[in-house]
């Protein structure tokens, strides 16, 4: 009897950063129109090494070190896409993407609509986002609400290594522009995954943990915190489900409603500030659509409505297990 190794099964153990790098490499191998551009993406391989080795394999034209100007990078990508290329732009950090917002909002998001479908822009904008890595100011923003509020953009954010690969491949293949938000604090978490296995498509939420008491609805960097909270909740007698949205646009309302209707209690968790955040939209929609199934108001656990704090204080801002469990405790269990 011969032993089949895990590698022969296609399984591998790796970090999210490695999975993203593999996704870029595989996309560039599969399609010559895929071009990567950004700051330090060449010889350095990006400050997070997500583009490591791409210039060596594909050349400096396919993985282009650009001048230091985010609007120029994204604007140039628009023109490249107009000529038939499929650009993948790296924004170095969440808050460094803001100079490119005009290009993103006024052109990338709208070009398909402005041209009645004649000029779709298949651009992927990769943005390392969120806190929890000890970054000094302007390096830790959870900026997803800005993007999700803009019609024409898909907003995707993986929480697992397998999703990092699968969702990035799908984003690059999409004919619509995608803002691909990479949770920085999950970059180095390892897990076993199989690139060939495939993942659920963009727009499909996935139940990461079944439960019978209530559901925690989250995405990206807060998803592992929710899983940790669900584990801790067992001691309190709660069996919490955890739903990973995976994309804010499209928002998988059908799956979210199905889970909420069956459990009657829900908490939306994200680290971005709460006011006008994605959680507000999700909680409102769930309330509108599932009102008669709810045993308690849909609650939100979010970062405070403050500028991102200095790294030595950030743990007070980021939603943790205790704050999530406090919210679960407020889901009107006695009534």
């Amino acid at each position: 009897m011969t032993t089949v190794t895990r590698e022969q099964h296609g399984l591998r153990t790796g970090t999210m950063a490695q999975a993203l790098n593999t996704a870029l490499r595989d996309a560039m191998r599969a399609d010559a129109s895929v071009h990567v551009l950004g700051e330090d993406v060449g010889a350095l391989g990006g400050v997070f090494r997500i583009t490591d080795g791409l210039t060596a394999e594909f050349g400096a034209d396919r993985c282009l070190d650009t001048p230091l100007a985010e609007a120029g990078i994204l604007g140039t990508a628009v023109g490249m896409a107009m000529y038939g290329l499929r650009p993948v732009v790296e924004m170095q950090f969440d808050a460094f993407a803001y100079p490119a917002l005009e290009q993103l909002f006024s052109h990338v998001a709208k070009m398909r609509n402005r041209t009645a479908g004649k000029l779709p822009l298949p651009i992927t904008v990769r943005v390392p986002y969120g806190g929890g890595i000890g970054g000094v100011e302007h390096h830790s923003d959870a900026s997803e609400a800005y993007y999700a509020h803009t019609p024409g953009l898909h907003v995707v954010t993986p929480a697992t290594v397998a999703d990092a690969y699968g969702l990035l491949r799908e984003s690059i293949a999409s004919d619509d522009p995608v803002v691909f938000l990479e949770p920085k604090r999950l970059y180095w978490g390892k897990s076993e995954w199989d690139p060939a296995a495939g993942v659920e498509p963009i727009g499909k939420a996935v139940l990461r943990r079944p439960g019978t008491s209530a559901v925690l609805i989250s995405y990206g960097p807060s998803l592992p915190v929710c899983l940790e909270a669900a584990e801790a909740a067992k001691a309190e007698g709660w069996d919490l489900a955890v739903l990973d949205l995976r994309s804010l646009v499209p928002f998988d309302e059908a799956t979210a409603c199905e889970v909420v209707r069956s459990l009657g209690r829900a908490v939306v968790v994200h680290e971005a500030t709460g006011f006008g955040g994605a959680g507000a939209e999700i909680a409102a929609r769930l309330t509108e659509k599932c009102f008669h199934h709810l045993a308690a108001p849909v609650l939100r656990v979010t970062g405070f409505d403050i500028p991102y704090p200095p790294p030595m204080l950030e743990h007070h801002h980021l939603p943790g297990v205790d704050r999530i469990l406090d919210a679960v405790a407020r889901l009107q269990w006695e009534e």
Binding site: G75, T76, G79, M80, M82, Q103, H107, M111, L119
Partner: peptide
């Protein structure tokens, strides 16, 4: 390209298209 209203935002588009060509 479409008539561009936000000033000069079409400039990098022209550059990107020329670069791709």
């Amino acid at each position: 390209a479409p008539l561009c209203t936000p000033l000069a935002t079409q400039v990098p588009h022209a550059v990107g298209l020329a670069h791709a060509a």
